[in-house]
């Protein structure tokens, strides 16, 4: 049963846009698939290799701007970004990793946070190239969401497969060894700096690809969107943590949950507060409804605390624990 679950999921995902014609749900699913890609990348460097990164937006934004600039400056199709976005993100990751992998643990995480901010500022200030805060607007290639959906699905499947293949190889064992004990890893003949670089570049490549997809799909980017600390970098970490750090399907589950949570807050609990305000005519509730949409970062924070307390290994990592919690409840329900 467990063996066939991924194929079942893939089948459902393939027929999804044919069954569900509502473009809002299709939009959400495209975002979920995009986050599977980014989450898989984050999982590679942070979950498996143990080098926690707070700077995924640097790679995401680079990929997005690559696609955007190819369209706006070179006049080519932004889809060329899908070919180059991953590599430009690697071009950012390479010097960063080369220098900053001399740092360990929290210090590396802080450096990656700095990388995020540096990229955002460059994109904001270098107006000749990036148009600064004005952003880049391109014409979407397709009116329907279905082509985007299948491209995103292909990318997501590729990411999951890539992580699976890498983790079954020598590289995978080396990444895990580095996570568990860097000194021991060195004594086993593992060039830790070299393999951390490989891991980071795989992560950057996937994240950059996701960024290029985002540009093509959304048609508009600006530095605040694609280099956003909380909406990209922190969200990537949450996808990883909620789904399960260091598990192949963790980012898949995490992406579903986090996109839902993000949307839940963005719409003010699916319009619950707005409805309540209209119903009661209360002014306070109207104000609350306005702010609750912007409070999703607070919601993320609370979610992290809850997940770490209840499911420290994420949903996939603690799946056995969840099942054990649920099944006794069921049997109790039957007997009474």
């Amino acid at each position: 049963m467990k063996k066939y679950a991924p194929f079942l999921l893939l089948f459902i995902l393939i027929i999804f846009p044919l069954v569900i014609q509502n473009s809002y749900y299709q939009h959400l699913m495209i975002l979920v698939l995009m986050w599977v890609v980014i989450g898989s990348g984050w999982n590679m460097i942070a979950g498996y290799t143990g080098q926690v990164s707070f700077g995924d937006a640097a790679f995401f934004g680079t990929g997005a701007y690559t696609a955007g600039l190819i369209a706006s400056k070179l006049g080519l199709s932004a889809w060329w970004g899908m070919a180059f976005g991953g590599f430009t993100a690697m071009a950012v990751a390479f010097p960063f990793g080369w220098i900053c992998f001399r740092l360990r643990g929290a210090y590396f995480a802080l450096a990656s946070l700095a990388l995020n901010e540096i990229c955002r500022h460059i994109a904001t200030i270098w107006e000749d190239l990036t148009e600064g805060m004005v952003g880049i607007l391109i014409m979407p290639s397709f009116l329907s969401k279905i082509p985007y959906y299948y491209i995103a699905l292909a990318l997501a499947v590729m990411s999951v497969l890539m992580v699976q293949i890498v983790m079954n190889s020598k590289w995978g064992y080396y990444f895990l060894s580095i996570r568990e004990d860097q000194d021991a890893a060195e004594s086993l003949g593992i060039n830790t700096h070299h393999y951390k670089m490989i891991s980071l570049n795989i992560a950057a490549f996937l994240t950059g690809m996701a960024g290029s997809l985002f540009m093509n799909y959304m048609g508009f980017i600006d530095p605040e969107v694609v280099f956003s600390l909380h909406d990209i970098s922190i969200m990537a970490i949450l996808v990883g943590i909620v789904g399960g750090v260091g598990t192949i399907y963790g980012p898949v589950v995490g992406a579903f949950v986090m996109v839902a949570v993000h949307e839940f807050f963005r719409t003010g609990f699916f319009g619950f507060f707005k409805g309540l305000a209209a119903l009661t005519g209360s002014e306070h509730l109207t104000v609350a409804a306005k702010y609750i949409g912007q409070a999703h970062v607070l919601g993320f924070g609370i979610l992290v605390v809850v997940v770490i307390l209840v499911l420290p290994n994420g949903i996939v990592g603690d799946w056995g624990k969840i099942i054990r919690k649920v099944i006794p409840m069921k049997t109790k329900g039957v007997t009474t």
Binding site: L176, S177, E180, D181, D183, A184, A185, S187
Partner: peptide
Amino acid sequence: FQVVKPLGRL
């Protein structure tokens, strides 16, 4: 290593 360094979660 004198202070053993197992790769604990493997």
